[in-house]
Write a protein that binds this DNA or RNA. Structure first.
Length: 187
DNA sequence: CTAACGATTCGCT
DNA sequence: GCGAATCGTTAGT
């Protein structure tokens, strides 16, 4: 049921990003338990992809976790405001990651609404990469966690959906790589 | 030490 | 549809 290290250490980050749509993200943070079905992801390849923080082997204090063996969390601050949650994939030394961009609340929905309040439209509880971390209780304190642990982990509930594939969002600075169809979304 | 810049969201037009 | 908010990271002086 819980996804294993093998799953995350596969060498095709794009295939993993596609497969993660329909998997269930689970957190147990500050005494509160929440689960949500992943509805949208994006793949980032550390070696060939200008949109990746680890492009061309770039290795800094922030990106160091991306070089770990697949199966850890990478949480970073975006635009000085939002914590974005990624799953590190591939073998040690190969800095691939999958950004989780959307969730459908499954368990602990009341907690998620409370964390997000004031919230006008409940359909937007966890509809974007910056809001789902708030709903799930994830911030930079949860960076570099082992996803085999009991704070953040993923489960396979054997859900399958039709999936749309398209270009990634908000990475115009990546030039030609911005056109790569590495975004996957539940239809 | 300094400066530029985001893997976004929300509110207002 | 547009623009402000906001601050850690990064690279360069």
């Amino acid at each position: 049921m819980k996804l294993t290290a093998d799953y995350y250490q596969h060498d095709d980050v794009v295939a993993i990003a596609r497969d993660l749509v329909g998997k269930v993200l689970c957190t147990n943070i500050a005494g509160k338990s929440c689960k949500g079905i992943i509805t949208e992801t994006e793949a980032y390849n550390g070696r060939t992809d200008k949109a990746s923080h680890a492009y061309d082997g770039r290795r800094t204090k922030r990106t160091e976790v991306m070089y770990a063996a697949g199966g850890r969390s990478y949480v970073y601050l975006c635009y000085g405001i939002h914590n974005l949650f990624n799953i590190v994939t591939n073998k040690e030394g190969l800095a691939d990651a999958v950004l989780i961009r959307g969730l459908e609340p499954l368990e602990g929905v009341a907690e998620m609404i409370q964390r997000r309040s004031p919230l006008k439209d409940e359909r937007n509880i966890s509809s974007g990469p910056g809001t789902l971390t708030i709903a799930m209780g994830i911030d930079r304190e949860q960076n570099n966690l082992d996803l085999q642990g009991d704070i953040i982990w993923l489960e396979d509930h054997k859900l399958t959906y039709a999936i749309d594939q398209s270009a990634r969002i908000g990475i115009d600075y990546a030039g030609e790589d911005a056109k790569l169809p590495w975004r996957f979304k539940k239809r």
